[in-house]
Write a protein that binds this DNA or RNA. Structure first.
Lengths: 232, 232
DNA sequence: TATTCGTCAAGAGCACTGCTCTCTAATCGC
DNA sequence: GCGATTAGAGAGCAGTGCTCTTGACGAATA
């Protein structure tokens, strides 16, 4: 009885996987706005209304893709970090940066879904917030590790962060325990700088201007590493 | 005869303006994907097909809005810069940063159109590239002015930029004449950092994490200013 | 002045979308 | 085996961008 019940549920799970796979392929070629439930159904040989048995709305399908995307990016970042020597903090940071950029270049529409303009009328549900910080968690660990190893030497160029930021730092500290507020503030600067750079490249702001993007990226990420005090 | 011809053209120009005005309002409330030619036509008391006399396609209407958006942002940035003492380079940078952020917060959907994920299938035509650099031109002038005044003291934390970036620097230098390559590289880092920060805030990456966004923004922009060596 | 001619709005229509509803058929648990 | 649950099919609604044709108006010309 358990086997039979899982039989139905298994085909259901398989269909859900097939739907998301096709949807992800469509997303990769057409982008988020071009993702059509009817087109997915057509490719599955289904009638469009049948899809609604598995995803109550287009937004729910989008949510599934967003979660998958965060996990894929997070996994890529985790792998890149794991391939580095634990005490090579600068190398780990650079590996993470490269992983983010390369994943984004390989999956531009998925990156846009995660870090681009939000889809109007779409509110990310709670299920997305855990996978969303997978990459950030890796980054936080690098900063925290470097700090605890006493290898973080931030240059004395930034003023101390305003006291009111201490509240927010409390939350961020869950990703990088026992790290002081000023390091957290710089860490946020570098992290937003990374994604600002990737977004500029991907969203066309470098068109007609920057051609050697990989080199510029490497150099900029190095500068940002210096800003947070990562050793060479 | 000339007067009569301009009479026709005048009503035409007025209608075009009315269409873009309504479209901009719709864009502000619904976002780019929610912008519908039919809805605009409905509000004008026109039939949908009549709109195509003025904008051959939805993309052309979008292009008009994009150009308007770049100009509006550029103007806001220019005004902010003009309100500062010419030799207060740090103040000018901060004013520009604030202007960008405030304009973005006031016009989130327009900002998303300019700096968010590109609309799939839409290729920005040549007419957009001139207005697109209006804000960047202001920024370039600040950096160049500070450099020429001998007030740029970049901290010795960044390695020299790779030689291959010299080609790209040549193009960027049209916005900040006679500025050396390493300053240009840092300037790009700061500029992408600014938009990375604004995009993170606007696109929801700070949700459930950062609450004191204005304070964090000020602090981060100060750090970036230090990175490029702007004096206090 | 009368007549072309270009411009414009209107309407119908095509192919597409997300989504809802009802109906039928298969499947599962008892 | 039987009642209850679930899956798929199909029609249909309201909306979209866009095209094509038709008829009206105004301006330049014969």
């Amino acid at each position: 009885m358990n086997a039979s019940r899982t039989a139905r549920e298994r085909v259901r799970a398989e269909l859900i996987k097939e739907i998301t796979d096709i949807a992800r392929r469509h997303l990769a070629t057409e982008g988020a706005t071009g993702l059509s439930l009817r087109a997915v159904a057509r490719e599955m040989g289904m009638v469009s209304s049948a899809i609604y048995r598995y995803f109550p709305s287009r937004d729910d399908l989008l949510t599934a893709l967003i979660i998958d995307g965060y996990n894929a990016l997070g996994e890529a970042v985790e792998r890149a970090d794991a391939a580095c020597a634990r005490d090579d903090f600068f190398g780990r940071w650079l590996a993470v940066c490269r992983a983010v950029r390369e994943w984004a270049l390989a999956h531009p529409h998925e990156y846009a879904l995660l870090y681009g303009s939000p889809v109007p009328g779409y509110a990310a549900p709670q299920d997305t917030i855990a996978p969303a910080v997978r990459d950030t968690a890796v980054y936080g660990r690098i900063v925290a590790d470097a700090h605890h190893a006493g290898r973080l030497a931030p240059p004395p160029i930034c003023p101390p962060p305003p006291a009111v930021l201490a509240e927010d730092a409390e939350i961020v500290r869950s990703l990088m325990p026992d790290v002081p507020d000023d390091v957290i503030a710089r860490a946020i600067t570098a992290w937003t700088g990374l994604f600002g750079m990737v977004s500029f490249e991907l969203f066309g702001q470098f068109n007609n201007t920057i051609t050697h993007r990989a080199e510029l990226f490497e150099h900029n990420m190095t500068c940002l590493a210096r800003l947070i005090g990562l050793p060479d």
